[in-house]
């Protein structure tokens, strides 16, 4: 009914818009409305300018990790070290260790001797510079009933002395699948599988759509819902570009088998923390390695094998 002037009369609504007969009252009102709207819009987005000011042009324009030249990579690592110093007050060393030829990592876990003490999860938390507030970790340990491997009956929140007689414990972290659903779904190739088998994320390329988090069957991926908060003294200064450097808000992250350690020849932090030695890590291409011995001599299984993800994280029981 109110539209009478505009459309009910067909073309008749054009009256004052561009009549050319000087400024009509309606034109003035429209201009005032538009100005008011623009002002309100500017006010609404004002906090963004502050946020954008924190974002350096170098960071904004940074290329994909795999397209950086060695010089550019050096500059990027330096910038990240500077940013960490500024934002967290800690001197750190960020490296981008390349994969080694003839090395393909594998991990196995002996469920018969895991006692569920969560030392591995805690070591991960500290090693990988996780947000202290949310106590994030890439490892979740499930308490399962003997006689069942059904996670639906499992409990990740147990808080009583372990191990309980009728229970066993299953730590779950990234399975570093050889057919990783998280990599396929990423719209921008921000996550990929390295030649040594590790699925990594370029934290500076990820757009934060969380499709990979939906795709992962193992709840292995984590999102930075806010920028991590870590006291300077708690920051682990031995950092890797693709692994444990302090992440930004709004990007995905995941377990990398502690790339910054393992590509240096060292054991992952979760393995070193394990008091019982339930964890076996090594180079699957080395026939003499411990992991190869486990694969050849234990009846290992992988989680959700039917999904065809081909994990390189294996579980086994003794005898």
């Amino acid at each position: 009914m109110s539209e009478q002037g505009s459309c009910g009369s067909g073309c008749g609504c054009s009256g004052d818009g561009g009549g050319g007969g000087g400024l009509s009252r309606r034109t003035v009102l429209k201009a005032a409305g538009a100005t008011l709207g623009a002002a309100a819009f500017a006010h609404a987005v004002a906090p963004l300018t502050e946020w954008a000011a924190d974002l350096s042009m170098d960071e904004f324009l940074q290329k994909h990790y795999r397209e950086l030249t060695p010089d550019q990579l050096t500059q990027v690592l330096e910038r990240i070290e500077n940013d960490t110093r500024e934002q967290y007050g800690r001197e750190v060393n960020v490296r981008a260790l390349p994969p080694q030829e003839g090395v393909s990592f594998g991990y196995a876990l002996n469920l018969s001797i895991c006692v569920g003490c969560r030392r591995c999860a805690e070591a991960c938390h500290e090693e990988n510079n996780h947000d202290r507030d949310s106590h994030q970790s890439y490892i979740r340990v499930f308490e399962l009933s003997k006689g069942s491997i059904d996670f639906a009956k499992g409990d990740p929140s147990y808080d009583h002395p372990v191990p309980q007689d009728d229970k066993y414990y299953m730590p779950v972290q990234c399975q570093q699948c050889d057919n990783p659903p998280c990599v396929s779904v990423c719209p921008v190739e921000a996550t990929w599988k390295e030649p040594d088998g590790i699925v990594v994320v370029d934290y500076n390329w990820c757009i934060g759509c969380r499709y990979c988090e939906a795709a992962c069957p193992y709840h292995a991926r984590r999102f930075n819902w806010k920028a991590p908060e870590i006291p300077a003294e708690d920051i682990n200064p031995d950092q890797g570009y693709l692994s444990n450097r302090v992440r930004q808000a709004g990007v995905m992250e995941k377990c990398t088998f502690c790339l910054h350690r393992t590509r240096d020849g060292r054991m992952p932090a979760c393995l070193e923390a394990c008091p019982t030695g339930a964890r076996v890590f090594g180079n699957m291409l080395d026939p003499d390695s411990e992991i190869r011995w486990v694969l050849a001599n234990k009846r290992v299984f992988v989680l959700k094998e039917e999904l065809g993800t081909r994990p390189r994280f294996f579980y086994f029981f003794d005898e």
Binding site: G116, R118, A121, H135, S157, D159, P161, V162
Partner: peptide, 8 residues
């Protein structure tokens, strides 16, 4: 028997 570290 151990006291586990706190759950997530």
């Amino acid at each position: 028997t151990l006291r586990p570290l706190p759950p997530p």
